[in-house]
């Protein structure tokens, strides 16, 4: 059974430990600015929303890549950036309508959530259970996928 990240904003306290864990896992430093998951803070409402790639079925980033540098990990289902093939052209960063693949000037390449190879550090770090890594079927992130389909350039495309 493939798993995916399930985010419950109502449980998020805005502690940003997920961001710290992500940057440590991928970049070896504690720096929220290097994180591939970001907590957006709506202070007026006292609401916090952790947000990262949903590994969406449409794979906008993969389709837009001119050098075939985004691959699907057959085991985890994650869309992963192949550092050897990415030339840093950034087309994926404007093609992804979720804004979840970003350019990293230090490496000259793009980075996105890769589900940490199947054991996401953000979910492990979350102290309140706002980020779960559970069966994809149960995540209810169909909402996001539905939204992706709505913005799809081909309304009924199922390819």
């Amino acid at each position: 059974m493939q798993k995916s990240l399930h985010i419950i904003p109502e449980k998020c306290t805005g502690c940003t430990q997920c961001e710290i864990a992500c940057s440590m896992e991928h970049e070896g430093i504690f720096s929220s600015s290097k994180s591939r998951i970001r907590v957006f803070k709506f202070h007026d409402e006292g609401r916090f929303v952790p947000y990262t790639c949903t590994q969406c079925a449409e794979a906008w980033c993969q389709r837009a890549c001119p050098t075939g540098a985004i691959d699907i990990n057959a085991r985890t289902g994650a869309k992963e950036v192949l550092a050897t093939a990415c030339v840093g052209c950034k087309v994926c960063t404007i093609a992804c309508p979720f804004g979840t693949i970003n350019y990293v000037p230090d490496s000259g390449k793009v980075a996105k959530c890769d589900l940490c190879g199947g054991d996401p550090a953000c979910a492990k770090a979350c102290p309140t259970g706002a980020i779960l890594f559970i069966d994809a079927e149960a995540t209810g992130f169909e909402k996001m996928r539905a939204w992706a389909a709505k913005t799809d350039t081909g309304a009924s495309a199922t390819a």
């Binding site: 960063t93 404007i94 093609a95 309508p97 979720f98 804004g99």
Partner: peptide, 14 residues
Amino acid sequence: RTNHVGVIRGLIEG
């Protein structure tokens, strides 16, 4: 600015 710029596409096309 480069962070999250793709979401501009999402806002427009959505």
